[in-house]
Amino acid sequence: MANGSRQAAWEFFGAELKRRREDAGFTQVELGVRVFVSGGYVGQFEQAIRKPQLDVAQRIDEVLQTDGFFERTWRKLIDDKRYADYFAAVVELERTATRICEFAPTLVPGVLQTGGYARAVTLANNPFATDEYVEETVTARLERSRILADATRPEYWVVLHENVLRIPVGRPEAMAMQLEHVAEAGRQRKVLVQVLAYRQGAHTAMSGMLQLMDFEDAPPTAYTETSFSGTLVDDPAVVKRAQRAYDLLRAVALSPEASLALIDSAAEDFRRCASTT
C-alpha cells in the first residue's frame, strides 16, 4: 500500500472512530478513560496523527461494541507478514517520525543494513528458510531504508556498540561492505553515527536494543527488543527514562569523527580477511 493511500485509510479509521464514539455518546476523554489512553490520544487517533496499538483498537471495539471492526481494520492497515507481529507497528511509525534515535548492541540497525548483511542475518536466524522467505525478508528490510532517501527524511542518530563492528555476520566481504555502507551514510550526513567502544565498559542501557521516535504532531515513543519479542511504549514517564538512558549512551560514546575512523578500520580488517580467503 502506497504511503498516500495508507494515510487515507488511517483517516477513514479516524473518521469511523469519531462517528461511532459520538453515536455511543462518549466524549474523547470518556472513551480514553475506558480504553486506558488520554482523551488527547483519542483525538489524535481520530485525526490520523497517531496510530493506536493493537490492544487499544481491541479495547475500542469492546467499549463501542463494534464487533471487531477496529481490530480488523488495524490488522489490514498495519500488519505486514514480512515483519514479526510486534514489529509491524514500529515500521509504520518510522515512516512518519521526524527523528529516530537508536542504540544497536549487536547488529547493524535494519534501516542501515545492506542486502548481503540482511541476508546473512536472516539465514542465521532461520537456517531452514526457503529462498522465497529469505528474499521477502531482505526486500522488506531494504524498503525500510527508503526513509533515509526521502527529501523529508528524519534526523537519524545511531549509537553502535563496538560488538556491531567486530562480530562477523556473513562472509568477510559482506561485512566489509556493510560497515562501508554505514560509514558512507555518516559522511553523506544521512545519519549521525557514534560507537560505544569496548573501553567504555558496561553501561546501564546495554541490556538490549533501544529505538526512540519523535513526531511532528504526536508524543514520542520508545521501542525495545529482545531476541523473541519487542515492546512499543508511549507512556510519557517511561519514554522520558528511555531518553535519559540514550543521552547517557551518547555522552560516553566516541565522537562522530572518531566513530567513523573506527568503522573504517574495522571495514579494512574485514577487507584484508576477505582477500586472504
Rank of each mutant, 00 (worst) to 15 (best):
L64E: 00
Q47F: 01
D131P: 03
D150Q: 08
T98E: 14
A149Y: 08
R144H: 07
V121N: 01
V182K: 02
L64R: 01
P168F: 10
I78N: 10
A89L: 15
A84M: 11
E162Y: 05
L123N: 10
T98R: 11
T96L: 15
F128A: 15
D61Q: 04
P105Q: 14
V56H: 10
I100K: 05
Q58H: 08
E62M: 03
V134T: 14
I147S: 06
E136D: 10
R99C: 05
Y86C: 07
T106F: 10
V90P: 00
L165C: 04
I167Q: 14
A140V: 13
E162L: 10
Q47P: 00
K76M: 11
V134P: 00
E143A: 03
P154K: 13
R119V: 09
P109V: 02
A120N: 06
R166Q: 09
Y117G: 10
W157A: 14
R144Q: 09
K81R: 14
V134M: 01
N163C: 09
S145C: 03
R82C: 00
L107M: 15
V121T: 12
A174K: 09
G115P: 01
E135G: 08
Y117S: 06
E155Q: 04
A129W: 08
E94Y: 02
V121S: 00
E173D: 10
E46H: 06
A174C: 07
D67S: 11
T73W: 06
V138K: 09
A89G: 09
V158Y: 04
V111A: 09
L93R: 13
V108I: 11
R166W: 06
E173K: 14
E143F: 00
V63I: 15
T137H: 13
N125I: 02
I60M: 11
R144I: 10
G68L: 01
L112C: 12
D85R: 14
Y117P: 13
T106V: 12
V169N: 04
T130M: 01
V158P: 05
D79S: 05
F87S: 07
N163E: 06
I100W: 00
W74P: 00
V158L: 06
Q65Y: 00
R144L: 04
L142R: 04
E135L: 08
I49W: 03
I78S: 11
R141N: 08
E92D: 13
C101W: 07
R144C: 13
R50P: 01
R146V: 06
T98Q: 13
E46W: 05
D61C: 07
P109F: 12
P109G: 09
P127M: 12
E46A: 07
C101K: 01
D61T: 02
K81W: 10
V111M: 04
A151G: 13
V91F: 09
A129S: 12
Y133S: 13
E173F: 03
Q65V: 09
A176W: 00
